[in-house]
Amino acid sequence: MERRQLEYFLALVEHGGFTNAARVLRVAQPSLSHAIAALETELGGPLFHRLPHGAVLTAAGAALVEPARQVGRDLATATASVREVLGLSGGRLDIVAQTTLAVDPLAAMVGRFARQHPKVGIRVTDPERGSEVGHLVRTGQCELGLVNAAVPTPELDGIELAEQHLLLVLPPRRPESEPLPRPGSGPVPVRLADLAALRLVATPDGTEIRDVLAAALLEIGLTLNVAVETAHRAMIVPLVLAGAGASLLPRSMAEEAAGKGAVLCATEPALSYRGRLVWRSGPRSPAADRFVAMTREHYAAR
């Protein structure tokens, strides 16, 4: 079994057919077909059902996916380690992170790392749910993951990060009837009971900030009043500025909104979330080792 065969196999898995995979790999389709057929002969059975409009994994093919990804990741780690010993720079770091954590604190973490190691390529992947982070790291699709600390990540090593506080972001203009701070009135805290009465712009159930707020309100017997639900997080600040509702955001996003005219308030009690950086046990690439070391030094919970 050759590395090239596994790379071709995984490309077929990811792109769903020989034509698409050959285009992405920049190889001739007959060469791809021959390599997969040779792999199937070596393993003793078909890995794909060949269909008119694509290729679907057989049970045997599905069993190969995770080991193939792990082999690919381990080979990349070995290559990067050798280059590090030889004094070469470069390499790649793949991180999967829930969106809110990607905004704060991961953006600052990646920025610090990129300044120190400008020749390392970094890719950040965004899953739909926090539960997917552990899966993507365990299967070798990403080397590091950043997940809400409340999400279980069995079989993974990790570091808990410092607490991140959330701020309430209100539209620049609101009805006079709302018993909340007006622009220019100062950072008056908003009680959770008052927050529950607001029309909110929120992400779907199962996303980290919505879960934090829903759990806090549930403790006092209240529920969310969601006016607009969107999975497009880039819409949240524009929706707040347009008067669609208020939102709870990480400090960096909240301060950006304030610069555009939104009103910021703390909550009483304060609401926060905490991330955990996770990775598989065993050898890591030099880039991942340095990122973990930097995280321990600058961002870990004290």
Rank of each mutant, 00 (worst) to 15 (best):
E7C: 04
A11C: 07
A11L: 12
T19N: 06
N20C: 05
A28P: 00
A37M: 10
H49M: 08
R50T: 07
E66F: 02
A68Q: 00
D74P: 01
D74Y: 05
A78I: 14
V82C: 09
R83F: 13
V85T: 10
V103M: 15
D104R: 06
A108S: 14
G111V: 08
Q116Y: 08
Q116T: 08
P118F: 15
K119I: 10
V124Q: 04
P127L: 14
G140W: 03
C142F: 11
L144F: 03
G145K: 03
A149N: 14
G158Q: 00
L161S: 10
L170S: 13
R173A: 06
R182P: 00
V190A: 03
D194M: 02
R199Y: 10
T203I: 06
D205Q: 14
V212L: 01
A214F: 13
E219I: 12
E219C: 10
A234H: 12
P238K: 13
G243W: 01
A244C: 13
G245M: 15
A246C: 13
L249N: 04
E255T: 15
E256V: 08
G261S: 07
L264N: 04
A266D: 07
E268F: 02
L271Q: 03
S272H: 06
Y273L: 05
R274I: 06
A287R: 13
A287G: 15
A288M: 10
R290W: 08
E297M: 04
Y299P: 00
